[in-house]
């Protein structure tokens, strides 16, 4: 492989995140800060998790259930952190709102809140992609390519980039769903996020089966699509609601 392929894989995994960053996030410094803090939080969560799992490593490569436990514990832990992240954000929002009231400025708009959630999600997604894909891509810039026996048709780097893209999508839009769920107290939205996260995590275990990636990756994209659609639908409804609220004449 070459530099061209290396950049190609990196763009597959992180190109959409880059687009999102350039077109939405980079225009507001606060959003950049949110992305960074969210990335940091996610990395810290991974460090803590790796510390917890350290005594049990290495896991046997041919037994899948310890990996299932690993995914389950990680998802639970990270969902806990997501709630914490929300609490911190909520406090910040209250502070900002009261500050805005004091200086007679408008409070945060709905779009601002959505963008903050989006930035938080992007931070998680980017951290995931950097950790699970970009770090593996370094040797891809050399001349060789690599195929794993269990997914023999597609280069390992391409599979990892495609999976990373799915996770970036899931993480980014899950955060929007979760924040709205918490804000509105909507149990369905609050519940669907951990379910999606866990489902996506567990689907990666399908790759353990010989040629499992042929099934596992499309299923993962199904989950990503569901997340995206659900998020879109929810945002659409919220926008409509917000329009109705802000227009008392109707």
């Amino acid at each position: 492989m070459t530099v061209a392929a290396g950049i190609g894989y990196a763009l597959v995994a992180l190109g959409p995140s880059l687009s999102l960053f350039v077109s939405v996030i980079s225009r507001k410094p606060f959003l950049i800060l949110t992305v960074l803090s969210s990335t940091l939080l996610w990395l810290v969560s991974l460090i803590i998790l790796s510390g917890l799992w350290r005594p049990f490593l290495p896991l046997k490569a041919n037994v899948w259930w310890p990996y299932a436990l690993l995914v389950l514990s990680s998802v639970c832990f990270q969902e806990g952190l997501r709630f914490l992240f929300w609490k911190v954000y909520k406090r910040l929002e209250d502070v900002l709102d009261s500050f805005a009231d004091r200086i007679s400025r408008p409070r945060l708009f709905l779009t601002d809140k959505l963008q903050i959630a989006l930035a938080g999600g992007l931070g998680h997604g980017v951290a995931h992609a950097v950790f699970f894909c970009l770090s593996l891509l370094t040797p891809a810039f050399g001349p060789a390519t690599f195929y794993v026996d269990r997914c023999s048709k597609v280069p390992f780097f391409l599979v990892s980039a495609i999976i990373a893209l799915a996770f970036v999508t899931i993480h980014t839009f899950s955060m929007v769903i979760a924040f709205e769920g918490y804000a509105k107290g909507n149990k369905v939205d609050q519940g669907i996020v951990p379910v999606i996260h866990l489902a996506a995590g567990m689907l990666t275990l399908v790759n353990f089966a010989s040629e499992g990636c042929v099934i596992g990756v499309p299923l993962l994209y199904l989950v990503a699509s569901v997340t995206l659609l659900h998020c879109g639908k929810m945002v659409w409804q919220r926008l409509k609601e917000s329009r109705n609220q802000s227009d008392p004449s109707r």
Binding site: A4, A5, I7, G8, L11, V12, G15, P16, S19, L165
Partner: peptide, 10 residues
């Protein structure tokens, strides 16, 4: 692969 990456991004 490079073209695919650029396409996805665009």
């Amino acid at each position: 692969v490079l073209v695919a990456g650029i396409t996805v991004t665009t």
